[in-house]
Design a protein around this nucleic acid. Structure first.
Lengths: 227, 227
DNA sequence: GTCTATAGGGGGATAGAC
DNA sequence: GTCTATCCCCCTATAGAC
């Protein structure tokens, strides 16, 4: 029941990308891990860059479909009424956390995804943007319907902050451990922790200081002098 | 008034690391940017790895000193009373956001730092852990004093989530732009946005689902409704 | 301290046999 | 589809002249 070469390459690449980063992972490492020949990558994918895209696409497309399906389910249930912010967050981040807890491959992928989103490489950033476009539009709309008083741009920023928290939640247990003893063995606990934090942040009072279109106080809160 | 070679190398390396990542930045790019000779890096720093450490240490040590100084100032003012969570967050993240807004070099560094914290490279992770150890201990203590009902481990996680949000706030404006039109031109606005989000998350009700040893009733000060 | 030149080791990609 | 062999590129690091 060995998977075919193409799949073995994808699996091996995914694991290695997580462990060492995209750049530091060589085709030689990948083909060795996949018990395939060095030339196999170029035969099946054309280039290392195309392989990277394939690794991402395989899981990301599925992940975003799940997110939209979850949103659909909530909206069907609500029968036209606005969703609760908690439901929107659940649909987007809950799916991700659950995938991150999946021992069968999704786990390592989510760690990779979180790190890559802010990477400076052009081709991967534009690729991710395409993959995310539809999902973001759907969630943006749902959120605006739920909380019409929150400006769209403020929501985008909060969404962005939430992605950061998610990214660290998933990929950063090792980093956290360096700061103190932590336990990330139970994904349900991590899920509960993150959810609570995200909803707290999402529903926080709007910042007093907003762009010039709104009223701008003459005096911003002063930085305190470092003793 | 040209800075000396050593400084020019640090400056050039910092900028290039931000733009292309640590791995993709070559010594040739650095020395070209610094108008220095290829061999100069190894002469002044010994190796590329040592140069990376030097780039980080130069700013990070200063940043963490500022954080501790800000905390000291708040604590002196409080005369032994617990600080407000808002003050603790301000001392840690406010300093960082302000550094990120600094046109004179700190800006690019903070973007680099945010991305690097979760990178899989061993040497840089342990290096960062050492640099952060003292700061985290101080802030952990201050926070425990301020909100003794929040378990230490929960705080560590929330701190970690906050670091993620900070990281994305700083290094992710480009990524955000791909999702919709955003304006990050005013650092004060970004600061206000992030602060509001962070404090909302930090003060969120404790998750209902906690490890058996530390299960506590979630009877925390309510988060206010957005808008 | 600064340079040139080069050693020595990978890297991704590909041609062509099987 | 899979393999070997190899091309050609660029990297870090260093030896040794100035």
């Amino acid at each position: 029941m060995e998977p075919d070469t193409r799949t073995r390459i994808l699996d091996a690449a995914e694991k290695l990308f997580v462990a060492h980063g995209l750049d530091a992972t060589t085709l030689r490492m990948i083909t060795a891990g996949a018990q395939a020949n060095l030339a196999a990558v170029n035969y099946h994918f054309g280039s290392k860059e195309a392989l990277i895209e394939a690794v991402f696409r395989r899981r990301l497309t599925w992940l975003n479909e799940q997110r939209i399906a979850a949103l659909d389910a909530f909206e069907a249930e609500a029968k036209g009424a606005p969703l609760k912010p908690r439901q929107i967050v659940e649909a987007f981040f809950g799916v991700a956390i659950r995938m991150a807890a999946d021992k069968g491959g999704g786990q390592s992928f989510m760690r990779l995804l979180g790190r890559t989103y802010t990477e400076p490489t052009d081709f991967i950033r534009t690729f991710l943007a395409e993959e995310y476009a539809e999902v973001i539009a759907r969630f943006n709309a749902a959120f605006f319907k739920a909380l019409p008083d929150v400006p769209q741009e403020e929501f985008l920023w909060r969404f962005h902050f939430m992605m950061g928290a998610l990214s660290y939640a998933i990929s950063g247990a090792d980093a956290l451990r360096l700061l103190g003893p932590v336990d990330d063995s139970d994904p349900d606990v991590l899920y509960a922790r993150l959810m609570s934090f995200l909803i707290g942040g999402l529903r926080a009072p709007l910042p007093a200081l907003l762009p010039a279109s709104q009223a701008k106080p003459a005096k911003k809160p002063r930085t305190r002098k470092a003793a």
